[in-house]
Nucleic acid binder design. Sequence first.
DNA 1: CCATTTATGGATCGATCGTTCCAGAAATGG
DNA 2: CCATTTCTGGAACGATCGATCCATAAATGG
Lengths: 178, 178
Amino acid sequence: MQVFWARGYDSASTRDLLEAMGLSRSSLYQTFGNKEQLYLEVLRRYREALIDRLSRRLEAAPSAMAFLESLFCETANEAGSERATRGCLIFNSASELSQRDTLPSQHARQSMAAITALFHQAVARAQAEGDIAPDRNTDALASYLTMGMAGLRTLLKSGADAGQAGPAAELLLDGLRH
Amino acid sequence: MQVFWARGYDSASTRDLLEAMGLSRSSLYQTFGNKEQLYLEVLRRYREALIDRLSRRLEAAPSAMAFLESLFCETANEAGSERATRGCLIFNSASELSQRDTLPSQHARQSMAAITALFHQAVARAQAEGDIAPDRNTDALASYLTMGMAGLRTLLKSGADAGQAGPAAELLLDGLRH
DNA sequence: CCATTTATGGATCGATCGTTCCAGAAATGG
DNA sequence: CCATTTCTGGAACGATCGATCCATAAATGG
């Protein structure tokens, strides 16, 4: 996962993968089939771990709005770090593989939808809690947040500092509160 | 440019490039040096053409706010098209090359800054025209718009339809008007 | 029209790509 | 402890990568 995350699908060579996993070629191909299937397994685990983690965070948060605020602000504060240039594996794969019609690219699209679904949950709860007007379009707000996070990730990947990413994320959150 | 745009830097093979350009290997290497320098030239031309086109559009627009509205709405309406899955070469290269320290990656970062600078112009004019409150932070709004366009591009690359992209872009513009 | 420069086609380079194969080592189970 | 299965190291596969080289063709200029 680390290798695919840092280098993308095409640029990650089987050499890199073997070295990082501490496996022999035979083991990799016997266990995972080939590079694409290994990548699919990585995407599957990444999405599951991400959605689970965010779902738990949302559930444990004092309010859905507090969850969204902390999520976007913490992400913006990654500015300048090596973590920031890596971005999110889901957005990365969606960007790299958008032109292809392969299982990984389909998986990436589904993962984007899963992120939007999670934001949908958060927005709906924030509306129930009175932090977002209940008459606002929940679907639209969910897509808006996915778009915002994807854009924030691109901003961070391109080397934006906290002085750019922070206020931009704040304005994004302002758009929720209306 | 078409080849790099559609396939990215690494995945674009010299074979693809030669075929698209109608040149022989000798001519390509004699004229452009190597693949990286050719890519740099492509990035340079793309940025120049994009910034020039948008600058002229901004200048010709009845108001800066009208320019921003049409830009984001037209982009959102590309949903589902082949053009949408290609995205923007600047965001694409920034995403693909963020981990590297090469001339193309530096160029991509500078291009991101150029986009933000253009949005800065637009926001400043919209403030002068009374469509955006003059006391709002122009820098922050410019970064916000770059983030929004990058996110919108990612949304479109991942196959979002107009029903998702359109309202998300509308909400983004609402954030300008406050 | 000839001398000089410039462009081209194609063979070829070493390196690396993802993948397969097989002999031998390790683990397993009765 | 032996028979059987499972795993591993390393060689090797064909294909493709970016890049170089050279003989030849085309263009140029006096």
